[in-house]
């Protein structure tokens, strides 16, 4: 068996792959948080619960109506996105004039309600969701075995992240969005419906979380608690990257996933805390985050 630094290559690449998978979810979730924060100035604490809801919608579709994974990838983000739009229209909208911290508290309360309801209904053991038939099996790459589904998750989430980056940074629609982030009053004066843009942005960010949830369903099983610890890690990712830059969220998300994976190989005891340790170091050296700008 081949080894690198005394670690079997099989284990090393296996953990690197898990790191990349986790990194895909970190990237998708922190991207959604960053987009929402940019325009709404709130941190969406419900993000983890909405990620979980995405997975549950996929499970419902499969088990109650027989609609499979590929349609779930489309339907779940839209359904959860609409749920987000309703929350924004009925509740968040009332808080924009107040301290931003109230948005955090409101979404925290909503997360407690949603997670509590799902836990009451489905317990905390998790429901199985099988890998779609087109993506079962895997490739033997010589140095490791690569399951097809995991490869798909990495490629697809990278594609989603890059398309989001492209839309926001390179298109006309994105330029409106960036302008409204800088100065909403001025953009309104040009005849653009900023409140509607805010609503749709929230729906889009929430939809990204749900999309990540659907992709996670076959890997982690569908569990009411799947989002609650993840969201705290994603917060740390956001602090490390700084929320100023879309590309920053993507790079930081994947990068930290890899760091976490490598820690599992070399020092497994620290694998749960390594991201928080990185956060502390980054704060000490570069308080604004790796890609952020201090106001």
């Amino acid at each position: 068996m081949t080894e690198i630094f005394g670690i079997p290559t099989q284990a090393l690449f296996g953990q690197l792959l898990i790191g990349l998978i986790n990194g895909s979810f970190y990237a998708l979730l922190s991207l959604g948080l960053a987009v929402i924060f940019g325009l709404l100035n709130i941190i969406n604490f419900t993000h983890g619960a909405q990620y979980m809801m995405g997975a549950f919608v996929a499970w419902f579709l499969l088990n109650k109506t027989g609609i499979g994974y590929w349609w779930a990838l489309v339907i779940a983000p839209i359904a959860v996105g609409i749920f987000g739009v309703i929350i924004e229209r009925t509740m968040l909208k009332q808080l924009y004039k107040l301290d931003h911290l109230y948005g955090l508290l409101l979404t925290f309360g909503l997360a407690l309600i949603i997670q509590g309801l799902f836990r009451n209904e489905y317990g905390s053991s998790g429901l199985p969701y099988s890998i779609p038939s087109q993506l079962t099996g895997g490739q033997n790459l010589g140095f490791m075995f690569l399951p097809n589904y995991r490869a798909w998750v990495i490629v697809f989430s990278l594609a989603v992240c890059l398309s989001t980056w492209f839309v926001i940074e390179k298109t006309k629609l994105g330029s409106y969005l960036r302008a409204a982030t800088e100065n909403p009053e001025l953009v309104r004066a040009f005849g653009i419906n900023v409140p509607r843009m805010i609503t749709l942005t929230y729906g889009f960010g929430v939809g990204l979380a749900a999309l990540a949830g659907v992709m996670a369903a076959p890997i982690y099983s569908v569990n009411p608690l799947m989002g609650e610890n993840l969201i705290i890690v994603v917060f740390a990712v956001v602090v490390i990257g700084g929320m100023g830059s879309i590309m920053g969220s993507i790079v930081t998300g994947f990068g930290l996933g890899i760091i976490e994976g490598l820690t599992k190989v070399f020092y497994p005891e620290a694998s749960a805390t390594v991201i928080f340790i990185v956060m502390a170091i980054v704060l000490a050296i570069r308080p604004a985050g790796l890609f952020g700008t201090q106001k």
Binding site: L101, V239, T273
Partner: peptide, 26 residues
């Protein structure tokens, strides 16, 4: 560490540090 950032960041940093302590205690 936390007072280096304000507002929402302060909340997220303290939450993340507390999660680190949680895993340490575990």
């Amino acid at each position: 560490l936390a007072i280096r950032r304000q507002g929402i960041y302060f909340a997220m940093i303290t939450l993340a540090l507390a999660q680190m302590i949680f895993f340490f205690c575990l």
